[in-house]
């Protein structure tokens, strides 16, 4: 994945656990050059190792770690360079989630090797949304949960999000239910 992902993970560890934690993790995964460039693709495996080591260092499960990084993703992008993109995608959660594919598609002009996920959003009721997530990558459902939680904070919309399992009719598709608290 592109360096942006690793950069956000590094920033999350730095902000939340401090520089010592980051250095310990780098040492464990034998990462010598820890300067990530947004515009450069890195092997997915590096990101997975970073997540796994961060989880073991902080004593959390990998899904919990991914969730934390997902929340940080929104926080980070809102203030570092991509804030305009977040603003462009919509002023409320539903519009935003419906525009995610446009957003990732637009990015692929700048990131030619992007293999973005795909999202579709459906209204189930006034305060309930269903999110369909498709990706060629595996094991990132908790990352999506964290991102949606982060979006809840970003839009000042208290919510609860749950991964409910694979989609009924489609393979390589995962479903999430979002309950908006009023």
């Amino acid at each position: 994945m592109y360096g942006l992902v690793n950069k956000v993970i590094k920033d999350a560890i730095f902000q939340r656990y401090g520089e010592t934690a980051w250095q310990a993790i780098c040492k464990r995964i034998k990462l010598e050059d820890d300067i990530f460039v947004n515009l450069e693709p890195y092997p997915d495996e590096l990101t997975h190792r970073m997540v796994a080591e961060a989880a073991s260092y902080t004593g959390q499960s990998i899904p919990d770690m991914l969730m934390e990084f997902g929340r940080h993703w929104i926080e980070y992008n809102a203030v570092h360079g991509y804030g305009d993109m977040l603003k462009l995608a919509g002023k409320d959660l539903y519009t935003f989630l419906s525009n995610l594919d446009h957003m990732h598609a637009g990015m692929s002009h700048v990131f030619p090797e992007l293999r973005p996920p795909s999202f579709r959003c459906e209204r189930l009721g006034e305060n309930q949304l269903k999110l369909y997530y498709r990706s060629e990558r595996q094991g990132l459902q908790a990352f999506v949960v964290g991102m949606v939680q982060g979006l809840g904070e970003y839009f000042d919309t208290p919510l609860e999000v749950k991964h409910t399992g694979p989609c009924e009719k489609e393979s390589i598709c995962e479903e999430f239910i979002i309950d908006i608290k009023v």
Binding site: L39, G81, Y82, D84, L88, G90
Partner: peptide, 29 residues
Amino acid sequence: LSLADFPSNDNSSNLLFSLKAQRAALEEV
């Protein structure tokens, strides 16, 4: 304007994101 003012099949909405992404990329460079 908001994105809703662009038809859903319109390439220009992708383009808008692309322009923003380009700008962010330029900032990084």
